[in-house]
Every structure is written in structure tokens, then in C-alpha cells.
Computed example of a mutant assay.
Amino acid sequence: MSAAPSRAVQRGILGALLLMGLWEGVARGFALPAYMLPAMSDVLAGVWSQRALLTEAAAYTLSEALLGYVLGSLIGIGLAVGLSLLPQVRGGVVAAVTAVNSVPVVAYSPLILLWFGIGVASKVVMVAFTVSFTVFLSTLAGLDRVDRRSVDLMRSFGAGRLALLWRLRLPTALPLILAGLRVSTVRSIIVAIVTEMLGAYGGLGWVIYQAVLQIDFVQVWSAIVVASAASLAFFGLVSLAERRLLFWKAA
């Protein structure tokens, strides 16, 4: 690991410790009730006491998020690449996709749960639906960044559409594609948790919903802390992969 990422990790850990210290001080100093803001020490104690339940729930949510993330990424990249090869239909498809995604994703949750049930499938579909739009837009923007002079030069050597795509458009679009994939990591877990809260057999969203019904606000925050840690880990892994793939940019 290079010095820059190491410093970034150190700053992130320091920032998290400062935030937890501030949280603890505010909660204790103002004697806030648990339903408003429990002390961080109580939340961490809750995470430890419920570690088996929260670990199982986190694994359940992460599996849904990862499956939906991979599926949505493939759909988004594939659709953008297809439109780059068929520019005559681009306007209509982009307008339709934008119209569908102009509605908050949670509005589709009841329909998806009705169609696919309250099991894993509905969460995967919801995550894929959300991720595909973000990745689609970032990939399309990346494919449009190609220098026209480079395109004309390659065409002068006899390069066709597929050769232009593979040798020029995709390498040029790679930074924006990876940026879209990085942004989608957090969104995938958020959507999975929200959909679980509307109906599920397990997962962090289900734990949060059950804890609210039982008026156990410490467990609510414990599940939120675990979800945040999972999101940060997922984001960090994709960011690391981005730095590895874009080594010339990192340098």
C-alpha cells in the first residue's frame, strides 16, 4: 500500500474516533434519552452483545447488495455500450430510463415485493435497479469523452465500431465507469436495507424494523453502526480496486 492511501486510512480512522468521542460527549453531557441518541458506549456494547445476530444480518444484507450490485453494474455498462454502438436509438432510451428513475426508488418497493416476494430476489432486483442507472450514466458520459481526432485517426487505419469501442472508447471511459461503481457501493446497501424494512426474512433492515417495534433504540443504532461499517468496507474495497486499475492516474 502506498503512502497516500495509508494516510487516507489513518485520517479516516482518526475522524471516526473523533466522531465517536463527540457522540459520546453529547449524549452523556446532555443526558439525552436513548430514543433520541444513545451513548456511543451503549451502542458499541449493544453491537458486542448482539454480535451473532448482527453478523448474520450483515452477511444477509451484503449478499443481497453484492448480487444486485454485480447485476446492476453489468446492466448499466451493457446498456451504455449498446447505445454507443446504436446511436440512432440513444435519445429515446435515455429519455425512458431517466423518466423511470426520476421517481424515488422506494416508490417501486411495494411493487417489487409483490412481484418477487419478500425473499432475497426482491432485494437483488431493487439494488440492481438502482445501481444500473448510476453506472449507466457514468459509463455513457465516459464513452462520450473520446477525442474526435483519435476516432478519426483510428478510422483512417480501418478500425470499425467494435475496434473503436475496445481499443479507444472503453479505456477512455474507464475512470468514469469506476467512479460510478464506487458511488454505487453505498447506494446498494442503502437500498437493500430500506427494502428489507418493508418486508424480509432477515438482514439489517429487518433487525432495525424489529428493534423499532420492540422500542429498543440501542439495537436500532447498533444495526445502523454495523451497516455503516459494511458500507465503508465495501466502498474501500472498490476504491482500492479503482486505484489498482487506474495506476497511472494514482501516480
Rank of each mutant, 00 (worst) to 15 (best):
R90P: 01
L111R: 00
A241S: 07
Y201C: 00
A8F: 08
T55H: 02
F116M: 04
V146H: 06
A27L: 15
S63N: 10
R148L: 04
S188H: 02
L178A: 01
G236V: 03
W221P: 06
M1E: 13
G91P: 09
A59I: 06
V94C: 08
L143S: 06
V194Q: 06
A16T: 08
A121W: 12
G203S: 12
I77T: 11
V106H: 01
G25K: 06
P87D: 03
K249N: 14
L83R: 15
I112R: 01
G236D: 05
E56L: 00
Q50L: 01
G91D: 12
P38E: 04
A250E: 13
V100W: 03
W115M: 08
A230R: 00
E56P: 00
M154E: 12
V47S: 04
P175N: 03
V106T: 07
V125M: 06
L245D: 05
A8K: 06
L71W: 00
L111H: 00
R11Y: 12
E242H: 10
V151Y: 02
I112F: 15
P175L: 03
I215V: 12
R243D: 12
G180Y: 14
L18Y: 13
V127E: 14
G203I: 03
Q210M: 10
Q214R: 09
S73T: 11
R149Y: 04
K123I: 02
S231C: 13
E242Y: 02
W115K: 04
G92S: 12
L79P: 11
S138K: 13
L204W: 07
P33V: 04
T61C: 00
I75P: 05
S222M: 02
L178R: 07
A192Y: 05
T195D: 01
L86K: 11
S102V: 10
S109G: 11
D152S: 12
A230E: 02
G29V: 06
I77V: 15
G15E: 15
